[in-house]
């Protein structure tokens, strides 16, 4: 088929244009569907395992769809591991990080995008440059600072940094505010609105696309973060969902059905948010990746 398409300009095609198009599309669907299957197998396997009994897990060849489905695994898991507590702890961190980012990001981005002050370009460049610094360099001194302040084993080290605004989010927001017409600000200023009123009443309501990205990615980063909770939290009662899962693995290494049930519950919030938000996200993130 492809050969026919290649040589089409040189000799008369064997197949009519409509047929070639049809075959081309069929082939595209076939390849894409096969790839999509490969990409989805891990998640399906996780679901399948989570619905098996302890013994069915070891059956060979494995069953793809367990009959009967052992839904009680999802009850048993809560008796073994305080998943609700871990999820609740993680939600506290998510809310804290959201408040921090939503406070700092619009403020900083707006100041960089709209207000003139000496040194603005240098500082903005500096902010972009900090995105290149590997976090390992600041990780150890930050730990010692929080340790001196007696804040290890609290949520402060895991929430406070959000109140300074993530440079990536600030950059994203800054690029978006730049595309909004300046006339909006000027008109509001003539009407007597101050700088902050313009930000919160005129600009921010127009910034839904970048704000969606900030909210969703803050949720994902915080929910998935493992290294920081691992470093800062010691009390099991304060563990996040990722720490809880890591510990569960050590304790119940062989009970794969329960482990997969717990894993599925841990990724479920991510999946739900993804399906609601993906339309707003993929394009927005891609356009930033493009500009750098």
């Amino acid at each position: 088929m492809t050969t026919a398409a290649h040589e089409a300009p040189i000799r008369t095609p064997l197949l009519s244009r409509r047929w070639r198009l049809f075959l081309g599309h069929s082939l595209a669907y076939l390849v894409m569907s096969a790839l999509a299957f490969v990409f989805m197998v891990p998640l399906f396997w996780m679901l399948s395992t989570s619905l098996k009994s302890r013994w069915e897990v070891f059956a060979w060849p494995p069953q793809w769809i367990p009959v009967p489905a052992h839904w009680e695994n999802f009850r048993l898991i809560f008796e073994r591991v305080p998943l609700w507590r871990y999820a609740g702890n993680t939600v506290i961190l998510v809310i804290g990080n959201l408040i921090g980012q939503l406070f700092a990001v619009p403020l900083v981005a707006y100041a960089f995008a709209r207000l003139r002050f000496p040194g603005r370009n240098t500082l903005f460049f500096l902010m972009i440059a900090t995105m290149m610094i590997p976090y390992q360099v600041t990780m150890i001194p930050l730990f010692t600072i929080f340790q001196r302040l007696g804040l290890v084993n609290t949520y402060v080290p895991l929430i406070l940094p959000a109140f300074f605004g993530g440079p990536f989010f600030i950059f994203l927001m800054h690029q978006y505010i730049k595309t909004l017409p300046r006339d909006l600000d000027d008109a509001a200023r003539i009407d007597g609105a101050g700088t902050w009123a313009i930000l919160y009443q005129i600009i921010l309501p127009l910034c839904r696309p970048p704000m969606t990205i900030v909210v969703v990615y803050t949720f994902w980063f915080t929910w998935n973060d493992f290294l920081h909770p691992l470093i800062y939290l010691n009390d099991i009662s304060k563990f996040t969902i990722q720490l809880g899962l890591a510990m569960f693995r050590g304790r119940f290494d062989v009970e794969w059905n329960l482990l997969m049930a717990a894993t599925l519950l841990a990724v479920l919030p991510l999946l739900i948010v993804y399906f609601f938000a993906q339309r707003h996200l993929i394009g927005g993130i891609a356009s930033v990746g493009l500009k750098g």
Binding site: F39, W220, A266, V267, V273
Partner: peptide, 21 residues
Amino acid sequence: TIFYLPAVLSGVAVALMWIWI
């Protein structure tokens, strides 16, 4: 949507899934 999905899943949960897969 399908191909981008894994990009939002990370952390311990997905690592555990890969051990099993």
